[in-house]
């Protein structure tokens, strides 16, 4: 178990090293950093001086090591546009994104697993068929269309929910949450639903497929032959066996939710990291872009590590085999 975690950690560090190298190279390949910092009227001497002060004349390797050293401490320099430390900017915006992702992940898991189990067991009922055919919508419609449609129905036509922003936010000092006001909840509903729709359908279909397969297995037949109740069979025996592959996908998807909430945040003008990234791209704000890249990679690495640990918790064949 311990060796396994160490090995995983080593792999994660390798991934982060590669990503940071790419993030670092952004500075040198996406425009000249000095040009991005100084105004049009800076003199040639000024530019040379700034280059030297920033150490841009040093060998690339030295610069990379310096970048790494700073990155590990969360230092990614100043945003070109806003002239504030990038780590502060990200930390300010992170709560918005994390809360959005949390709510949509919960929606996706609860809806996806319940509907998946239901359609897996009641394979031929009309309600299962209805769920399955409507789930096609979630798979096939792009997020921005769903978002715009939801805004049109609930914000413009019915006027039930706000169309953009975070609504009422309570500042806890280190975290700005929208969970503590009704306004905040009203504001988070539409974007969270939009973000979760694709994940919900994916989890639904996966759980259903796994469920169908497990229900055919010998140990379910044997459980039936012992006269166990339907509830014990469906939830005690079948559901747990469907979870291993489902967790893999859920893990990857939750990483994806955080990384790619960009579109949803744009549609709903949600003040999270995704929106910040898109704005940074518009203005070639390289420090934010590179920091965001590292941040997303870190999220994926951590989520995958957690997924691997969850295998241990769920499947004794992995847990005991490794000891």
């Amino acid at each position: 178990m311990f060796a396994f975690i160490l090995r995983r950690l080593a792999q994660s560090i390798l991934v982060m090293a590669v990503v940071s190298a790419i993030a670092f190279s952004l500075f040198n390949f996406v425009g000249d950093p000095v040009n991005n910092m100084v105004g049009q009227d800076a003199t040639r001497e000024d530019r040379v001086r700034i280059r030297q002060e920033l150490g841009l004349d040093d060998p690339v390797l030295t610069q990379y090591v310096r970048f790494l050293g700073n990155a590990v401490q969360g230092e990614f320099g100043l945003s070109y546009r806003i002239k504030r430390p990038v780590d502060q900017l990200i930390l300010e915006r992170l709560p918005a994104t994390l809360e959005l992702v949390l709510v949509s992940a919960v929606i996706a898991l609860v809806l996806g697993i319940t509907a998946g189990v239901y359609t897996g067991i009641q394979r031929n009922s009309w309600f299962s068929r209805f769920i399955l055919s409507s789930s096609l919508v979630g798979v096939s419609l792009p997020t921005f269309i769903i978002g715009i449609a939801l805004i049109y129905i609930f914000a413009v036509y019915l006027r039930w929910l706000p169309s953009s922003g975070r609504g009422g936010v309570v500042d806890l000092g280190w975290w700005k949450t929208s969970f503590l006001t009704i306004d905040g909840w009203r504001a988070i509903l539409l974007p969270a639903l939009t973000l979760s729709l694709f994940q919900t359908t994916m989890i639904l279909r996966l759980v259903r497929a796994e469920m169908l397969e497990v229900m055919q297995s010998d140990f379910i037949k044997f459980a039936r032959a012992r006269g166990l109740s339907e509830r014990a069979i469906n939830f005690g025996h079948a559901l747990k066996n469907t979870l291993v592959p489902v967790i893999t996908i859920i893990g990857i998807n939750i990483g994806g939710l955080i990384a790619f909430s960009v579109i949803t945040e744009t549609v709903f003008q949600w003040p999270g990291t995704g929106l910040m990234f898109i704005q940074a791209v518009d203005f070639v704000d390289v420090p934010i872009m590179s920091a965001y890249l590292c941040f997303v990679a870190l999220v994926f690495v951590i989520v995958n590590l957690v997924v691997d640990l969850m295998y241990f918790a769920i499947d004794p064949r992995i847990r005991i085999g490794a000891q």
Binding site: S217, D218, F219, K221, F222, A225, R226, G227, N241, D315
Partner: peptide
């Protein structure tokens, strides 16, 4: 009523012991 007969009155043994036990439960 069949549920009360299965297991209580009539037991069944399957072919493949590798697959007839739930791998995730002791």
């Amino acid at each position: 009523q069949m549920k009360k007969i299965r297991g209580d009155k009539i037991g069944m043994i399957f072919q493949d012991p590798q697959t007839s036990l739930n791998p995730l439960l002791t």
